[in-house]
Simulated scan of single mutants.
Amino acid sequence: MDHLTLAENLPSNHPTVKFGKIGVLLINLGTPDATDPASIRRYLAEFLTDHRVIERSRWLWYPILYGIVLNTRPRKVGKAYETIWNKEKDESYLRTFTHSQALQLTKRLSDLPTVQVEWAMRYGQPSIRSKIEELQKSGCERILLYPLYPQYAAATTATVNDESFRALIDLRWQPAIRTVPRYHDDLVYIDAVAHSIESHFATLDWEPEILLTSYHGIPASYFAKGDPYHCQCHKTTRLLRERLGWSKDRIMVTFQSRFGPEEWLQPYTDKTVEKLAQEGTKRIAVINPGFVSDCLETLEEIAVEAKETFLHSGGERFTHVPCLNDGADGMKVIEHIVRNELAGWV
């Protein structure tokens, strides 16, 4: 029975029910609503109480989190956000880019009238729960969840899926769900990142001696437990090198954004930048292939802090290659992944 026939045969007192649509939900990490300490504290509390992010016992971690971290870090993190805040829209650039990606994807999928695109954040607003409920109420009987992470990690892709399925628990009429898998070695993605490197280098009046592909780190213990993230980051970089036709000594993998005293994946980006400068490398570039959109970790930690470290340690030229963001290359990747994963639904 098709949807039109079904609607015609509903009893007169039946509640209005919308159906027949397919939802696509783009989901990024998250962002505070503002840069003031209260907003940052609220955001960090949600982020750092996620057991996928911090796997320590809550009995050991929560006293540190609520007694020290959430009382000392919000002001520092807020000041960092202020340096890269989108003043025009009064929001973080991560929110700006993710919203734009959803709007542009809607236009790119205009040939699929039953598809409805929305966006959400794992931490902060708009929440995954609110958007799944919104899509379901608007008639989406099927939803494609798209965690915006090319490389899989339990602390990124898995926690997005966890939160999404938690939201389904409270729905009487659950939509069918698909989740986008890792695409760290997808050739459309690799070509887009490689093209962004070539295009950025073409704007320089100097040639970087080495390119660092800096990925967000995870504790080494997570890798030892079986997380495939480390291997997928290395494969992405290898495929980029092959696509660019470069020698092995011109590109290398590093990991950034470590937190706390535990050992994280190495080599560390900040230590590598410092070491390269001290050993005589004068010109470097850094790119973040694991980030779909520029954010605090790229705009402040790399473009500002890593640059300062390199120059203060003896380097002369530093450049940060922007993320794909909502540019043509980035949108080509997102559209490609979505169309692939919608196969059989549309």
Score class of each variant (00 low, 15 high):
A343I: 10
E316I: 00
L311T: 02
K307G: 07
I302V: 11
F291I: 11
F291V: 12
V338R: 03
D329C: 14
I284R: 08
A277M: 00
D326E: 09
A328P: 05
I334C: 01
V338S: 03
F291P: 12
M331C: 03
C323I: 05
E297M: 06
G290Q: 08
M331V: 04
D326S: 10
I334S: 01
V292E: 13
H320V: 03
I337M: 13
R339W: 06
G280R: 03
A343C: 12
D326V: 03
F318Y: 05
H336Y: 04
T281K: 15
K282V: 10
S313R: 01
E274H: 13
G327Q: 08
P289C: 07
G315H: 01
T298N: 10
T319M: 03
G314L: 04
H336N: 06
S313F: 01
E308D: 15
G314R: 06
S293E: 06
F310K: 04
N340T: 15
A285W: 02
K332H: 11
G314K: 04
V292Y: 14
A343R: 13
E316K: 06
K282D: 11
L276E: 01
A303V: 08
G280E: 07
T309N: 08
G315N: 00
A277D: 00
E335P: 09
R283S: 14
E308F: 09
L342K: 00
A306L: 09
G290T: 08
N325I: 03
G290L: 05
V321F: 08
V292L: 14
E297D: 10
F291W: 12
L311K: 02
D329S: 15
T319N: 04
A306F: 09
D329G: 10
E316L: 01
V338G: 03
K332S: 11
K282H: 13
E301H: 12
A328L: 10
S293P: 02
D329M: 14
K332D: 11
V338T: 06
G327T: 09
I334Y: 01
G315L: 00
A343T: 14
V333R: 04
A285P: 01
A285K: 02
I337R: 14
C323S: 13
H312I: 11
